[in-house]
Computed example of a mutant assay.
Amino acid sequence: MYKIEEPIYFTFFTVIPIIIVVYLLVFWWKKRTQKKFASPELLAKLAPNTSTFKSVLKLVFFLLGLSFLILSLVNPKMGTKLKTVKREGVDIVFALDVSRSMLAEDIAPNRLEKSKQIISKIIDKLGSDRVGIIIYAGNAYPLLPITTDHAAGNMFLQNANPDMVSSQGTAINEALNLARTYYNNDEQTNRFLVIISDGEDHQEDTKQIAQNIANEGVKVYTIGVGTEKGGPIPIKLNGSLIGYKKDRNGETVITQRKTSILQDIAEIGNGIYIDGNKTEVPVEAIAKIIGNAQKSEFETKQFSDYQDQFQWPLAIGLLFLVLDIFLFDRKTKWLKKIDLFNEEANN
């Protein structure tokens, strides 16, 4: 397991493209200046040992050396031991609706991105609580198993999109059933499920399944995103809008938030419904609920005894810089003697 001690030094990598641009400009200026004094044929006779390849190779070695020196400044560290630690917290699973209707832009930037912002900000406010993420549309899939690694939660969350689910629709039932398998600690007394959706296309037996999960001690909270007025579902290609989803009659589909079903699920699940159109409202509400909940002790494994690894990129970086110093931008004599293409005979 690796971690970065000084990530601020990654900004030094911005120097590399600047060096490349400067090198290309100087190379262009030299070629242009040389053409003013002599033809390419005459220059080849006056400076027969000049090698453009060696010049480029020197630049590559220099940039590689510089890159590894920057990595040494960042100082990656590696965990050498895996130890078991005890923590106190609750288990909270997020079920994120990634159906096509969540792409509607009746709230900015769209329903899905708003939902991801809400989940990310809630995770940032958690302590040692364990989190898990489920995505669902026509089917439900585990995006992140329940874990204490909040950074991983935020990372996986950013990649959530409708293309990750093979069939479309809004299978809240499958999300509820999948969530039941996430709570793997029988001693955990506080279990929370947070469903974020626009509430469209629910199924008939949703209430019964919500009742079943509530009977197992899971408190179900729902967050609704979107407006009752609704909006069209954009169709984009490479980020550009090419149209809107239409029904069989050729009419533009207008997707609306269905608040009532989300309210019913929350009521049956011993939780509450929260309007998610203003990010800070559900974030503060859920954070307060989790903060006031009784914490249970659980065991988790984590890496310890992190050791510095800066010496390896430092050594590689110095090696490339030494190679750059001793590599001359002239053609190698023994390579010149090898007439691979029989050029001398042709002449």
Rank of each mutant, 00 (worst) to 15 (best):
2 Y>F: 07
10 F>Y: 13
11 T>L: 13
17 P>L: 02
19 I>E: 14
20 I>S: 08
24 L>W: 09
29 W>N: 15
34 Q>V: 10
36 K>Y: 03
43 L>S: 12
45 K>T: 10
54 K>F: 01
55 S>V: 07
57 L>A: 02
60 V>N: 06
64 L>D: 01
65 G>W: 07
71 L>A: 09
75 N>P: 13
77 K>Q: 14
105 E>H: 03
106 D>S: 10
106 D>C: 10
106 D>P: 00
114 K>Y: 08
125 K>V: 08
127 G>H: 05
128 S>T: 12
133 I>V: 07
134 I>G: 04
137 A>G: 02
139 N>L: 12
153 G>F: 06
169 G>K: 07
180 R>C: 09
180 R>P: 07
186 D>C: 03
189 T>L: 06
189 T>G: 15
197 S>W: 02
198 D>L: 11
202 H>A: 06
206 T>W: 12
210 A>M: 06
213 I>C: 10
213 I>K: 03
217 G>T: 08
224 G>R: 01
224 G>K: 05
229 K>S: 13
233 I>H: 02
239 G>W: 12
243 G>W: 09
251 E>V: 06
258 K>P: 00
269 G>L: 03
274 I>V: 10
275 D>P: 14
278 K>F: 11
279 T>E: 15
283 V>M: 14
288 K>Q: 15
301 K>Y: 12
303 F>N: 09
305 D>S: 12
305 D>Y: 10
306 Y>N: 13
308 D>N: 13
327 L>H: 09
327 L>K: 01
335 L>P: 03
336 K>E: 04
343 E>C: 02
345 A>P: 11
